[in-house]
């Protein structure tokens, strides 16, 4: 077993009285592709969002490359902004709603992190941004405004924006859930292409078919804990837990 890049120990997350994540231990090794599935409200998005500190942890530790994130002083852990920014440079994220910057062109969206965060010269940033946009098949749209693009195109720009930062881990939070059905394929193909490059990725999704082909490991999350973990065959084809079987059966209900 390879040394993990990212490790999570005893993760809890509460929103007020609502206890969403109830003690999760987890690690990601280089090259792993992990699909996280589960019903709505199971906490799968929250879990993903904890990993790049889009949500603050209520309890627990996150370790990146053997170093704990956060600063401990008198038993209190604080998360200085500088540390979190450094984490987010290394752990990229793609959102369900794309979250492109509407006042910037496609190219500017992808250059933004390189120029503002990495302090790169515009010329060099432009070069990299063009390469990433080419990779997601949007070379034609570099000067378009995001608002003029289809949902699938917007999501591919968002993927290029995340890739531009050269992250070691990529988090996908239901990347196709807000897309029209006929646009889902173009985004999944891009993600699949990244899988072929051997990238380390975590994907929260309802596309179980894609999860089956994409993932090296599948996690079924229910009631804020890992209910079942295994290979795609184990979890998606031969689930052992009753909850998992029930979840998959409901998904297959209207299959033809």
């Amino acid at each position: 077993m390879q040394k993990p890049i990212l490790e999570i120990k005893g993760l809890h997350k509460r929103f007020g009285d609502h206890h969403v994540l109830r003690g999760i231990d987890f690690s990601v090794a280089a090259g792993e592709r992990i699909a996280i599935i589960g019903g709505s409200g199971s906490g799968k998005s929250t879990f993903l969002r904890c990993m790049n500190f889009m949500e603050t942890l209520s309890e627990g530790e996150i370790w990146l490359d053997g170093k704990r994130i956060g600063t401990e002083r008198n038993g209190q852990v604080t998360y200085p902004e500088r540390q979190l920014c450094a984490v987010r440079e290394r752990v990229g994220m793609v959102f369900q709603q794309f979250n492109l910057f509407p006042h910037m062109t496609v190219l500017q969206n992808v250059m933004e992190g390189l120029v503002t965060v990495k302090g790169m010269a515009r010329e060099q940033a432009r070069e990299i941004a063009l390469q990433e946009l080419d990779k997601v098949g949007l070379s034609e749209k570099v000067d378009a405004w995001p608002g003029r693009l289809s949902g699938g195109q917007q999501q591919r720009v968002a993927i290029a924006r995340a890739l531009s930062m050269k992250p070691e881990i990529l988090l996908f939070d239901e990347p196709t859930s807000s897309l029209d059905p006929e646009l889902v394929g173009e985004v999944l193909r891009v993600i699949n292409h990244l899988a072929e490059e051997g990238r380390t990725m975590l994907l929260v999704t309802h596309e179980l078919g894609f999860a089956y082909h994409f993932a090296t490991k599948v996690i079924f999350l229910a009631d804020g804990v890992f209910h079942e973990v295994g290979t795609p065959d184990e979890v998606l084809k031969n689930p052992r837990q009753a909850r998992t079987q029930e979840f998959l059966r409901r998904f297959g209900e209207f299959a033809f």
Partner: peptide, 11 residues
């Protein structure tokens, strides 16, 4: 989402 999108690239 705009603030999140910005933070997600390390801003």
């Amino acid at each position: 989402g705009q603030m999140e999108g910005a933070k997600a690239i390390g801003m």
